[in-house]
Write a protein that binds this DNA or RNA. Structure first.
Length: 296
DNA sequence: TAGATACCTTATAG
DNA sequence: ACTATAAGGTATC
């Protein structure tokens, strides 16, 4: 594999790989030491994280770890553009923080994980990941994606080790509901299969939502099966670059009830608008992600 | 349109 | 050991 190092001096603000990759935004990275999401003694300061990205349609192994002020990488391709995109290395955290409100909860959340970036996952894997996220814990969502890759994804062998790309829409649509249930997806199995079929047959593509205004984009994504407003917001925020999207999950709803009761408007669309305003408008999704990770 | 209920599976609490 | 509960919700009625 090629090797290289990317200096974090080129990033406008701080960057922390572990909180970026282990904060429940992306389920496409794996930790080489097997200690993903561990509570104690799991400091990932120099742990390797791995994924199989698609570069021009071809699977490419990418490994990365943070050592002091640089990202060391090993890859079958030049990993720099992949890392820049997927880890949103161009985001200016100090500027974003300066642009959002600074109440007590938000301040504490930013302080706790300062350096965490939003991610930009590829749309289809992001869609599948968050369909799987319904009524699931973070570690199990991650495990489901690893199982999907292992059983259905294209294998890539490098240096005697075999990695697996995330399954394509065709590969997922080709699996039976029973197979997907056997991978632990439960009632999400037919949702994943049918949404994959819609993409495989060219009826719709989650990437196309990126061209729409925010609320229209959210509505478009809910046309996929197993995708309601919350899952749609996750894909918009963690894949399609809508930084204003605030997924209203159980944690954020609890936070709203406790700290922002005025924002509870009884329905998703209106509560979403209110909390988006309270969390900083165009960067509200950044605030949400810090608060989610802080309170989780 | 708003509200109630079923839904897979598993880790964790009691 | 064994049961109850809840987990980044959605579809359906």
């Amino acid at each position: 594999m090629e090797r290289g190092a990317l200096s974090l001096a080129e990033v406008p603000g701080p960057f922390d790989l572990q909180s970026t990759v282990e904060s429940g935004q992306s389920y496409l990275w794996d930790r080489a030491d097997g200690r993903m999401y561990e509570e104690s003694g799991a400091y990932g300061g120099d742990a390797w994280y791995e994924t199989v990205a698609r570069v021009d349609g071809d699977p490419a192994v990418v490994r990365v770890r943070q050592v002091e002020d640089r990202l060391e990488w090993e890859s079958t391709v030049d990993a720099v553009p992949v890392l820049r995109e997927r880890l949103r290395l161009g985001d200016d955290l100090p500027a974003i923080r300066a642009a959002v409100p600074d109440d007590e909860v938000i301040e504490a959340a930013f302080d706790a994980y300062w350096g965490m970036h939003l991610v930009r996952d590829p749309p289809f894997p992001s869609l599948v990941s968050f369909i799987c996220s319904a009524q699931m814990r973070v570690a199990r969502i991650h495990g489901m994606q690893r199982a999907l890759e292992r059983e259905l994804g294209t294998p890539v062998t490098v240096d005697g080790r075999t990695y697996h790309a995330f399954p394509t829409p065709d590969q997922l649509a080709g699996a039976t509901e029973a197979e997907l249930r056997n991978l632990g997806l439960g009632y999400r199995a037919p949702y994943v299969r049918e949404s994959a079929r819609i993409v495989a047959d060219g009826e719709a593509d989650p990437a196309d939502a990126a061209a729409l205004p925010y609320e229209d984009a959210r509505g478009a994504l809910t046309d996929f099966v197993g995708v309601g407003e919350k899952v749609a917001d996750c894909v918009l925020l963690f894949s399609l670059g809508f930084l204003e999207a605030v997924p209203l999950d159980t944690w954020i709803r609890t936070t709203i009830g406790e700290y922002y009761p005025d924002c509870d408007r009884g329905n998703y669309a209106e509560t979403s608008r209110a909390i988006r305003a309270a969390f900083g408008g165009e960067y509200a999704g950044y605030t949400q992600t810090y608060v989610f990770h802080y309170l989780r």
